[in-house]
Design a protein around this nucleic acid. Structure first.
Lengths: 342, 342
DNA sequence: GTGAAAGCGCTAACAC
DNA sequence: GTGTTAGCGCTTTCAC
């Protein structure tokens, strides 16, 4: 590194005081235009950059956002967070913020890290992911007045109260699954099955509701209520589910994840009925789905990230305003399954 | 946030000077033990944390590392970087460092970001990923004396020179593919095919060499030299490759990636020969491989991350020492393909 | 509109 | 061993 250029160097070179330089940077309107232009020109030429540590010491603003990096999951999912992370980094960068990552094994540990990062590094805000029922993190942050936005709805407590009124952005999984189901209905399918997660999963229930909604509004209940298969998020469960539901006569399958869809389509491909394997729609539009030509419900992660950033900036600028929420609609990505196998 | 505790508060409370507190933190040996213990006790009780901005302003050390987040790739891969990122964050955290992410579309842009992050945020070092031939980044950093470690070997320039002698950590892809090939050889296979990437890819060539090595040392060349199929990194290419090589009588396939392996195994599953689909080994041990019960060569990302961190710390502590490198051996993860389809 | 003074929290250098 | 002095680079008063 060459020697550091400071505001003083510029001031001396230009024969003005250092405050003038500072003003050009932070309150341009207070500076006479001629002076301002002269200073700005010199700043650009010299490649001067204000030092963030000095600024932070003065302002208690670090221009730094924090996010816990979830442990790489076993499942195929996590690809969503991948894309989200990239978009979030990009969005933060576009607004002059940096993104600091950290690890934690539990929510409690995450809160410990919050405290540390707040006092040590003075992070300006946090992004929460993987919110679930009885999540203590929103309240922890809210109590301390720390700006944050969650990617994921507050799912309330077991008791059903939704005391945590904070800013969040989420993707409407229910609507995505409904779209997928109705896509099949439009194609003439009647016996459409659903493979999803056990009932204690908030996200899983939400997705399942999309299937319930669509089916309820098109067909009499007795025709389809049994056509649902729940299990953990694995290709194996997808395969088992496909086998069982196929025996019940389903002609199409909507799945709560690409892992499940992968297993299901893999099973169906071996079945004698032609074209059946293409009657599977997954969720999250992961790289596997793309690789296999599997249709999937795609989360608009870039939009989510941009929205998260917007809500954070909102909290930074004003004081004491209402939390705001966004429920973004996913997009159905229909692929031609045939194209893959030559 | 409650009001910030500073070193001055502690000094007043304890009736010592602020410098003594600082010494306890930074040069404990200079402080009388009784004083030290008293100070340490108070620090722990009060939850005091030294402010990093103030430290940074003084020391020009930010305790912050930078890494470019590669855009989520289309392929199934990128899962490796996922695991690496997590492990790196963890390793950095364990040593009191934070990890700052940033985006860039090109290497040139990445260097621009280096410059910015260096002058604005005074990052202490960088982690480079995705190194390839004619990579300008190592030289850029080295010229400026910025500590960095690359995940990925320097592949030299087209001319073949390897002027960039910097610290790096990499996984021996060649050895991984050799192990995979020899695994098949040990099982009695003779006609073992390889599906990989075009010849202009450094990583791809390396992996292909593993297959070449193993085959060369076991079988006469005329038997197998034709059993190689190269194309871009997609399941489709894997499928096409499997078709073509199967026609040439291969009984097992080693692939340069899980994407290729996915396509290959998917094709083979439809072939009449039973068990053939389980004679495929991929590379990177991505979640898809796990989901499908596909064998794969697994990169020891946690070890890589720990090693990267070690080499960075080494550069931080001493001055002007030799670069150091590590070539880590991947591990062959053999799975029972059958188990998946019930 | 511009300049001077003060201080954010911490630590290297030096005195005691 | 411990305290004092000075200053990292910047910005917010407050004079001028």
């Amino acid at each position: 590194m060459t020697t550091r250029i400071t505001i003083v160097d510029l001031a001396e070179e230009l024969g003005v005081s250092r405050q003038t330089i500072s003003n050009v940077l932070n309150a341009p309107h207070r500076v006479k235009e001629a002076t301002r232009l002269r200073v700005e020109k010199r700043i650009a030429e010299s490649g001067y950059r204000p030092n963030s540590a000095a600024r932070q010491l003065r302002n208690h603003k670090s221009m730094n956002l924090g996010m816990r990096l979830p442990r790489a999951s076993d499942g195929i999912n996590g690809a969503v967070l991948d894309g989200f992370l990239y978009s979030l980094t990009e969005a933060a960068q576009a607004h002059g913020y940096r993104l600091t990552l950290f690890c934690a094994d539990t929510d409690q540990q995450e809160m410990n890290r919050f405290e540390e990062l707040l006092s040590v590094a003075e992070l300006d805000g946090f992004v929460l992911t993987g919110t679930d029922r009885d999540d203590e993190r929103p309240a922890w942050l809210a109590e301390r007045g720390v700006p944050f936005v969650a990617f994921g709805r507050p799912w309330g407590t077991e008791a059903g109260s939704a005391e945590s009124a904070h800013s969040w952005v989420d993707v409407d999984g229910s609507s995505g699954v409904r779209d997928a189901t109705e896509h099949f209905i439009a194609q003439g399918h009647r016996r459409i099955g659903f493979i999803g997660w056990p009932e204690d999963s908030a996200v899983g229930d939400d997705r399942r509701n999309g299937w319930l909604d669509a089916m309820t509004s098109h067909f009499p209940a007795e025709e389809w209520t049994a056509l649902s298969y729940l299990g953990d998020d694995s290709a194996k469960v997808g395969s088992s589910g496909a086998a069982e539901l196929l025996a019940q006569g389903v002609t199409a399958l909507v799945c709560a994840s690409d892992s499940l869809a992968l297993g299901a389509s893999s099973f169906l491909r071996q079945s004698p009925i032609p074209g059946l394997a293409s009657s599977v729609i997954g969720f999250d539009n992961t790289p596997v789905a793309a690789a296999l030509g599997l249709s999937s419900v795609s989360q608009p992660v870039a939009d989510v990230a941009a929205e998260v950033m917007r809500l954070l900036l909102r909290q930074f600028s004003r004081t004491a305003m209402e939390p705001e929420n966004s429920l973004l609609r996913p997009r159905l990505e229909i692929r031609n399954f045939q194209s893959f196998n030559r």
